[in-house]
Structure formats: structure tokens, C-alpha cells
Design a protein around this nucleic acid. Structure first.
Lengths: 352, 352
DNA sequence: TTGTACGCGTTATCAA
DNA sequence: TTGATAACGCGTACAA
């Protein structure tokens, strides 16, 4: 059985078997140009019992396109967010005849650059970068003449981008909690200072969420305590966990006046909050309401988490669409901002 | 800025700029063969300020290798298990100079075949298939002369394979629970009948786990009730959730004599169990102990889940290693079975 | 309607 | 030590 690699048949071999030229075989396969029915049938027959598969390397070389997309992500296993984006990229890419290759860099700038370079060598048709660590890496890709799309977060590099409306999302979360009657709402989020930012948006993702929280607190005239705001490292790369969320909630529980609701800016963080509450023998939402962000872990937690959903798959798909449009010669760099929405589940209720 | 795609420089262009032949440039780049120091320096200089990147398509065509690996998975977003495997594949692949491409098929046999074909066209150096849906798909890949490795589950196709020791894992889970003093232990698992199996192993993954459960119950002489065994669909493709686990636990809670501990054969299922228990206002591990399988969601649940870990990343890496060895002309098809182990966290305790 | 022939960018062989 | 040159497999002008 399966002896030495039986080198796959080539167009020339098919042509020989069918007694025609390679050009004709190619025409049959591509269903392009004139081919006599009789000839077509003969070639088709050979094709059938030869299990011929065009060599994508060769045709890519010829076509000057690889029909592949490169996706660079920080750490695909640490936050389900990235897998969902990747899934969206893959599906939409397929629709354009492209395969997706993924590269993880664990937040390491040099490694990210390495990944970009490898993709460029492979002549990917498009390069998508989720949470780029450095503008320089994005620019390197742009300089190579490949359509580049930044996803979720932007550096100051002016490429195309697909973002979620984080200010909207945070506002929606707060509106839900305030609407339920909560007046003591804590905020657990990522530290803006940890990700030095100087992109085209006025504020980073973290800053937008925090700003929306503060605005909501002010607008509703509810309790505004500095110690209700806990910011720290989102999660540890590469092995993510909700430790930060857990510790933040532990601290909140020591306060004289405990918050009755918590807005965690990431489901992974919210999962940690749930662990803290469980350990303290407090019930959600009876004792404390909790709302997350992303809609990743949410559906699997106990209780199922009310959360602000980001259209993760759609973000990936949209990035592919932008890139393909650019490839087809479309307009100038474009930024797409997608809306978020709240998914009500079992972790929110009126304060007791 | 970024005007028309400035086609990347080719070897010939570099050669012209440096006043040498393409052969020489190639020698400099590959650091292979004799090159005069002066010449090398001249070429290196040109290389530096040209941002030349070899065209991987061309060199792949020439080398008759694509330096890429195809990974076929059922549904990467429905169970974190697959991402972890993918991560292992990617890292190890990189170590061999290979990029990894992933294809999702949502459990659809025809779609899986489609993915295999696309990979074959791209002349992947190796094809890894996680949970193949049909032996025919695996065989198609083998027939193309590519090293094929099945991961986690086997069909009857006799390719290389990387498996986890599921019987061992389930035994370890039961040993932990029994060791804690539990005598009424329920089993919530996947339905073997749902995945028609006829592989080389005597039992399917599901059957192995269930068999180990039954053996442990018998050996320890603890309560053996048929209604303590709940089997059903693992999770719904493509959007996984722990619904099955939740419903199974709901049913268990209606029993006259409730189990004091539960062994769920998948963390996703265990997450559903936790939801059921939470809704019933029962505490884990105070009222019921719970142990999962996989170590995917485990660390994020409340309470953090004691679980049987599978070496997911290692499984992916091992698959790559097997494939690369085969590519290098190594021996016959080989099956590697990796051990599992228990990770103690907060969901298990002696019965109250 | 079909076939010939060239080029896509690299690399390896062979001759100089 | 270097340079011509010939593949690798495909697709497409262009000629027939």
C-alpha cells in the first residue's frame, strides 16, 4: 500500500493521455474558450480517473496571486475572541477562493514582524492584523503593496481597519444596568497604559469603554467612586485566564459599600469575577449583577452571562471583504466600525 | 502614499542591481556554495536596501514542496479543544519552516472532503485531520501521497494517528472521585452511537470513557444505577454550548437518590452541568462534586473545574512531527497515544 | 477548434 | 569563483 509518494499528475501528463495539448486540457478545466464537445468529453474522462489536481503553487506563480490570506493574531488560545475572528476570516476568504493562514505572536513585537515577513514571502493576497503591537509592522506590510486591514485595534499606521464601536458597547452595558435600577456600578477593565496607543481614533479601545462608563455614571447621577474603577492587565499572554477579574472583584468585595453591579469589559475578566463571587458565596444576579463584553465565554458560564456582543465573525469577514475590494482596485483606505449589542442572559437583575 | 502595488523585486532585479547573476544572488541568500567575500558584500548591500523577499510560490514550485501544512477540524469555534490542537500544530510547524492552514467543516462530510481537496491542490507537505468524519476523506488524502495524520479520533483508514489515552483519562477521573469517598457517581458523556465508528481501536473515544467508568464503578463496588449514566449529543455544531450537559444534570437532579459527584466527559458539558447546579441553587463542590475532561473551559469556570487534561497542544505538535518524519522518509504508519492527567482545582471535595 | 511556445521566480547543475 | 541554462507546472497569447 501507499508506497513512495506517487507524484501527482501534471497537466502535461493528462494532455498526453488524452492525446491533446496542455492548452486544451487547461481550457476544459477552466471551461474557458472553444473546445469541441468530443474533445472535451475525452479530456474529462481522463481527468476523472486520474484524480488530477491543479498545482496551486504553479498557477499562483503564473497568476501572480497566491489565493491565500495571512491573519496575524496575538494569542489565539488565550481569548476566544481571536478564534471567532479567525473563523470569520476563513469562511469569507473561502468565498473568494482564498485559504487562510494564521500566525500567533503572543504579543511579541519582533515575532509579529517575523510573521508578517513570512506571509509576505508567501505573497499572501491580503494581510489582516488583529491587535497589531506596532505600527511599524503594519507599515512594513503596506510597503510591500499588499492590502492590509487592522482588526479590533488600530495603531497609527493608516491602513484599512475594521473596528467595533466600543463606546457604544460600553454605553449599552451601562444602560442595561442602570435601567435595572443599579446605582452602585463597578467597572473592571483593561489598563489603557499597558497598550501605548497613538492611533487615528481619539481614544484607545480601553479608553473608549472607560469613558463611556464615566459618562453614563455622570449622566445618570449614580454613585461615582474612584475605587469602583479597577483597571489592570486584561489577561496574561499567552495562557489567558480571568485572574485579573477575580482579583479585582476580590478587592471590590472588601469595600464598605459594595457595588450591586459590575461591568467587566471582557468575558474572560467576567469569568474571573464569577469565580470571586462564587468563592465569597455570593449569588449572581441575586447579590450582584454582572455584565460582560465580547460574547465569547458568556454562554458557557454559570449563570450564563449577559454581555455586550461584538460581531467577531463579521469583523473577520468584513476585513476580508475590504481587502478583496482593494485588491480589485477599489478606493482608498477605509475604516469600518461595526455596532455592538447586548445579549440578555442570566447574570443581570434589579438590585436586591 | 501606497500607490499601485509596487511589485516586489525579484532575484533577477537584485542580480542586475548588483551586477551579478541570479545564481550568485541565490547563493548569497542561501549561504550555500562559494561566493567571493567582495561579491557577497556587494549583493548583501543591494539586498538590504531593496527589502527583497524570496517568492515562496516560486521556490515551492522548484523545490516541489509548499512548506505548508493543512489542518482539518470540525468546528474550531465550538470547542476550544480544536484551537489548542491548532496552536500546537502551528508552533511545531513553524519549527519545520511550515505555515499552517486551517479548514473548518462543521461536521459535514462533503465539506470535509472539499477541504482536503483544496489542501491537496496546494500541495501541502502534510495533512492533519482532527476527528475525521469519514474514512474515505482520509484515504483520498493518503492516495495523493501526502503524509496524513489523524488526531484525537480515528476512522478505519490506516494512516498515522495521534490519540489521547481516553480509557486512562476516564479511570483517573473516577479514581479521583472515588478516592474522595464518593459512592454515587453519575456519568455524562457523548453518545457513541452518534459517531458510527469502525476504527482500528477496539472502542471509540466515547466507548472507552464509558467503559472505564463502568469498570471503575464495578471495581470499587459503588452504586451502579443505569440512570446515573446520561449520554447524548456532545454539543451542537457549529455553535457549541453546554446545553446537553445542563439538561442531563437537570434530569439527574430529579432522581430519588441524587449522585454526589458527576463525571462529565468534556469541559463544555461540565459547564452546562454547572449552570444546572447554579440554577438549582446547589453549590459545587459542597453539594455535588464535578470533574470534567479536556482542560479547555475548566480554568475559567466558577468554581474552577477539576478536570482530566489532554495534552492538546502536544497532540498537534506530535502530529506535525510524525508527518515530518514520514516526509523525511521514515518508517511505516505509526500511532502515538499520549497520556492524560488530572488537574485538581476547586470543583471536587469529599461528599457532605 | 487546437497546438506551440513563452514566462511567472527560484534553484540546481554544469561548464567556464 | 561565477554565469548560463534548464526545469518546476500552469495559463495564455498567438499562430495554425
Amino acid at each position: 500500500m501507499a508506497a513512495l509518494p506517487p507524484k501527482p499528475p501534471t497537466l502535461a501528463e493528462i494532455a498526453r493521455s488524452a492525446g491533446v495539448s496542455t492548452a486544451t486540457v487547461s481550457r476544459v478545466i477552466k471551461a474557458r474558450g472553444y473546445v469541441a464537445d468530443a474533445t472535451r468529453a475525452r479530456v474529462a474522462a481522463v481527468l476523472r480517473d486520474t484524480s488530477y489536481r491543479p498545482n496551486a503553487l504553479a498557477s499562483g506563480l503564473r497568476a501572480q496571486r497566491s489565493f491565500s490570506i495571512g491573519l496575524v493574531v496575538p494569542a489565539i488560545t488565550s481569548n476566544p475572541f481571536f478564534v471567532n475572528v479567525a473563523h470569520g476570516v476563513e469562511e469569507e476568504g473561502l468565498r473568494h477562493g482564498c485559504k487562510t493562514m494564521i500566525f500567533n505572536h503572543n504579543g511579541d513585537e519582533a515575532l509579529e514582524r517575523y510573521g508578517v515577513d513570512r506571509f509576505l514571502e508567501r505573497r499572501v493576497d491580503a494581510l489582516l492584523i488583529c491587535n497589531a503591537t506596532a505600527a511599524g509592522n503594519v507599515e512594513a506590510a503596506m510597503a510591500a503593496g499588499v492590502p492590509v486591514v487592522q482588526i479590533e485595534r488600530e495603531t497609527r499606521a493608516r491602513s484599512m481597519a475594521v473596528l467595533a464601536d466600543n463606546h457604544l458597547g460600553a454605553s449599552q452595558a451601562m444602560a442595561r444596568l442602570i435601567g435595572l435600577g443599579h446605582r452602585r456600578i463597578a467597572f473592571i477593565g483593561g489598563d489603557p497604559a499597558l497598550l501605548p496607543y497613538s492611533g487615528p481614533q481619539p481614544l484607545s479601545v480601553e479608553e473608549q469603554r472607560l469613558a463611556a462608563y464615566r459618562e453614563a455614571v455622570d449622566a445618570a447621577g449614580i454613585v461615582a467612586r474612584p475605587d469602583y474603577v479597577r483597571i489592570g492587565p486584561y489577561f496574561e499572554m499567552p495562557q489567558g485566564s480571568g485572574r485579573a477579574g477575580r482579583e479585582a472583584m476580590d478587592a471590590l468585595l472588601t469595600l464598605d459599600e459594595r457595588p450591586t453591579a459590575v461591568f467587566a469589559t471582557c468575558d474572560v475578566l467576567a469569568a474571573g469575577v464569577l469565580q470571586s463571587l462564587h468563592a465569597a458565596r455570593l449569588r449572581v444576579p441575586d447579590d450582584v449583577s454582572l455584565i460582560g463584553f465580547d460574547d465569547t465565554l458568556a454562554i458557557n458560564l454559570a449563570p450564563a452571562l449577559t454581555t455586550v456582543a461584538q460581531p467577531m465573525q463579521r469583523m473577520g469577514a468584513e476585513a476580508v471583504r475590504l481587502a478583496m475590494a482593494a485588491l480589485a482596485g477599489a478606493a482608498e483606505p477605509r475604516t469600518v466600525t461595526l455596532p455592538t449589542w447586548v445579549i440578555d442572559r442570566d447574570s443581570t437583575a434589579p438590585p436586591s
